[in-house]
Write a protein that binds this DNA or RNA. Structure first.
Length: 384
DNA sequence: AAATGTCACAACCGCCGCCAA
DNA sequence: GTTGGCGGCGGTTGTGACATT
């Protein structure tokens, strides 16, 4: 038997709320609390259904709602959490004080999602879209005809890509990193690798390829990495403290198993973790940036090169020295853009706001997130 | 200046899970 | 075990504001 509507629609008002209605609702809840939403409208003298009242209160009138544009840290947190939680907007909102699930959902759909798509990142899986970044075919054709190479544009790297480098990268990739010990030999055989620029190009190629097929294609990582696709690995990982998840870069960390994703959801839900912008005490974190309160089972997640490799989705506040150090290594907030934590926005459902930072600036931020680092796996310094 | 297109966001809709009777 | 009420959640829509032609 299906359920009927939550209330009798007849005579009940829909659409935008008036100031008078808002005032009535606020006055009533401040006096009596919301109690039963079903009976609230009648008691408060509102011609609305309870559900409408609840939404208006939780999404707009609640006094602790933070209005205005999302800060950089908030946006970063949303992306990180979304990569673990998926479209669990309420769970994400629980980690962002003052933000509602509806607001986050809207912001995701209208800003972040579009930007990720523009960057060639699948907003669902948070991995590069294979249809846009089929490196195998690109590399394959480029090796024989380097002039056709558009990879550099895709990756945003220097357009001058040495064909010899491509051949070498292709050879290495074709062996799927099965024997990374051969790398030094291969590299040493090629004088090109004395050039740091070439090294960066090479590592970008390898990293991009790893991002394409992260689970299948990095066998040498299996005992260390944090991809979770195998039940045994999951069990193993659940037994290992987070400190023992070492060298595979966080960029490579994808959670492909729904159960583990749920475990993360539970972990986050049950174990409050502070996020940037929340005035986190730095002593809540260990030396490696992992919060002391964080359950060891918690799985670090994909990032876009924004975080250092040994960082996880939680990091200390910007005030902490660890945070500064880790981020200064490869990313500088101030150098990318300065976004006010919140811009003025009137308390009116029909109002709009003035963008204080442009989409281009945010794009710049995201492109920085895609600046691949040389993974620990391929530490070029060893070959110098 | 008007028409049209696009964007952003508040609000609604329908489904789901929990819980009490 | 079943049923119905309720709150909550995620997806979608409607509409005003702004940008472009």
């Amino acid at each position: 038997m299906g359920r009927g509507p939550c209330c009798d629609k007849n005579g009940l008002k829909k659409g935008p709320w008036t100031q008078e209605e808002d005032q009535k609702l606020m006055d009533y809840i401040q006096k009596h609390g919301h109690g039963s939403w079903r009976t609230l409208p009648k008691n408060a003298g509102l011609a609305r259904c309870g559900k409408s009242c609840r939404l208006r209160w939780t999404n707009y009138l609640r006094p602790d709602i933070k209005r205005g544009r999302f800060s950089f840290e908030e946006e970063e947190t949303i992306i990180q959490l979304h990569s673990i939680l998926g479209n669990k907007w309420s769970a994400i909102a629980a980690r962002l004080p003052g933000r509602t699930d509806n607001e986050i959902k809207n912001y995701w759909n209208t800003h972040i999602r579009k930007r990720l798509l523009r960057m060639g990142i699948d907003p669902v899986t948070h991995s590069p879209r294979l249809d846009l970044l089929d490196l195998s075919s690109i590399l394959g054709s480029s090796i024989y005809n380097p002039t056709q190479l558009h990879l550099s544009r895709l990756l945003g790297i220097d357009p001058v890509v040495n064909s010899e480098l491509l051949r070498l990268a292709s050879n290495i990739l074709s062996s799927q990193c099965n024997n990374l010990n051969l790398l030094p030999q291969n590299l040493q055989e090629n004088d090109q690798f004395s050039n740091p620029q070439i090294q960066n190009q090479f590592s970008s190629l390898v990293q991009a390829q790893q991002l394409q097929n992260p689970i299948q294609e990095i066998p040498s990582c299996t005992t260390e990495n944090t991809f979770v696709s195998d039940p045994q690995l999951q069990a193993q990982q659940l037994q290992n403290p987070i400190q023992e998840i070492p060298s595979c870069t966080a960029e490579n960390t994808l959670v492909s198993d729904p159960q583990l994703m749920q475990a993360n959801v539970d972990q986050i839900s049950s174990n409050p973790i502070d996020f940037p912008g929340q005035n986190v005490q730095s002593d809540l974190y260990q030396d490696n940036g992992v919060p002391c309160s964080l359950d060891p089972n918690f799985v670090p997640i994909l990032n876009y090169g924004f975080f250092n490799s040994d960082q996880y989705i939680v990091h200390p506040s910007p005030e902490s020295s660890d945070f500064q150090q880790n981020h200064n290594q490869n990313f500088n907030f101030a150098s990318v853009l300065s976004t006010p934590a919140s811009s003025p926005k009137t308390l009116n459902s029909l109002s709009t706001h003035i963008n204080s930072s442009t989409e281009d600036e945010r794009d710049s931020y995201c492109s920085n997130m895609l600046n691949f680092e040389i993974p620990d796996l391929l530490d070029m310094s060893d070959f110098m």
